[in-house]
Design a protein around this nucleic acid. Sequence first.
DNA 1: ATGCCTTAAAGGTTAAGA
Length: 268
Amino acid sequence: MRIATWNINGINARLPAVLTWLDEAKPDIVGLQEIKCLDENFPREEFESRGYNLETHGQKSWNGVALLSKIPFDEVHRGLAGDEEDLQSRLIEGVFSTEDGGIVRVCNIYLPNGNPVDTEKFPYKLGWMDRLYNFVEERLALEEPFVLMGDFNLIPTGYDCHDPKAWWGDALFRPESLEKWRRIMNLGMTDALRATTDEQAFTFWDFQAGAWRRNAGIRIDHLLLSPQAADRLKAVKVHKDTRGWDKPSDHVPVEGDFALVGLSQKAA
DNA sequence: ATGCCTTAAAGGTTAAGA
């Protein structure tokens, strides 16, 4: 089973690229972030005609997440618990049956950026990460294959960054953010990319200042795995080539291959 | 360089992203 995450920075602007990539990579489950549209405006037909089931958690103009799956959804959950006043659409989770009689749980997140740090955006990020900690703690207690993936807006180490000194202090790479990240990881989650390679890999290159040309990237899109998911991990791939496509997103897809087979996959 | 590009939604510009 191939499970992938991609911040597409607008579904309308990115539709051709996303469809081209789906046809190439043939993922079974995909989490998209920054769909930037209302649920009713998502171009469903393009995905359903390719055999994907689709669930969205959108909002007007900004944010918004979606899950595509060749495997029918057993359950869908929208939103992160813990703050009634948080109206931003940043989390969607699906539960899917597998051939072995078990399930795989896939949660797709768009973690708040948090910049500028002297505004309310930064405490919002930290509060969101505290709520995510509680969520992950609950999920791990289920002892299931669980994949928490998405745009975390977090650089785990200086090695995950072209220029750590330039980024240090940014909401993506500073002590308060890293402390929250490590608390979550220390619950027992595995960073899928780091479990399979020591090579430097980036997932985001800014549109500006020739960041792509200079390979001035950072790694902020992650797949984090419960022990039961990590045990089934076979390979991880970063689809760096998509950043060089026409009308690219500033992020690229990250996919994990797992020794799992979905139950009654919808025919393509 | 606290936005050099890109997106969305408006509306002839502004806010947001990382």
